[in-house]
């Protein structure tokens, strides 16, 4: 454990808290992609099946349970809550997210640490997480008005993987750890946010409302 890793996980947790606060206090999920949220549920279920096979950890296990519970809660709100579901921008959430699943599954089938059920699912979850933000970014680009909570949510979600990159660099030098699969996927995942980061920071510096061109 190092400071980058701790900060990364807390940032990830904070992003989820921001989204839940937005949904619960404003009773609105406007600007949030249900497709991205669906993909996160799939990511966490396929990655954290190891809850059943791995010894409990005081640090990892609570995080895993929280990520599973909150991602399912968010999807539940967006699909079934009678007020929240009416605020969902269904017509703008156009990304064909099912087309992300198959390539990630094929990639996981061929590129994995070990060809076992748990390891292939773990690899699938890493690849899928890397691209799961795409429907959300597409939805934001079609939004003329991005509210602060939504902007902060996406920023924190991107910052989390960027901090993992620092953690991996640290671990490479300090612990001699090499993990090509999450590293390359994490690099792709962070790169997808580059454009968003640019406009987020620009709007923050100019004290303007966030808008993607």
């Amino acid at each position: 454990m190092n400071a980058f890793r701790l900060l990364a996980d807390l940032t990830h947790l904070l992003s989820i808290i921001i989204l839940l606060v937005k949904i619960r206090t404003t009773k609105s999920c406007a600007g949030i992609s249900l497709k991205t949220q669906d993909l996160y549920v799939l990511v966490f279920i396929s990655r954290y099946l190891d809850l059943f096979t791995r010894p409990l950890s005081l640090y990892n296990t609570p995080f895993k349970l929280v990520f599973l519970a909150t991602s399912i809660t968010i999807v539940y709100y967006m699909r079934y809550h009678k007020v929240v579901k009416q605020t969902y921008n269904k017509d703008s959430d156009t990304f064909k997210h099912y087309f992300l699943i198959l390539p990630c599954a094929v990639l996981a089938f061929f590129i994995n640490p070990k060809f076992t059920f748990i390891e292939v699912l773990w690899s699938f979850s890493i690849y899928l997480e890397a691209v799961a933000i795409l429907p959300q970014l597409v939805l934001l680009q079609s939004s003329s008005n991005i509210d602060n909570l939504t902007g902060n949510y996406v920023f924190m979600l991107g910052a989390y993987r960027a901090l993992y990159l620092l953690n991996w660099i640290y671990r490479f030098f300090a612990e001699d750890v090499v993990r090509w699969i999450p590293w390359i996927a994490g690099l792709v995942q962070t790169a997808l946010y580059a454009d968003f980061f640019y406009y987020y920071i620009k709007s923050w510096r100019n004290n303007e409302r966030l808008k993607l061109p």
Partner: peptide
């Protein structure tokens, strides 16, 4: 490698 199977990250 065995090292890669540890998955000690979230």
């Amino acid at each position: 490698s065995a090292e890669a199977l540890k998955h000690d990250e979230l």
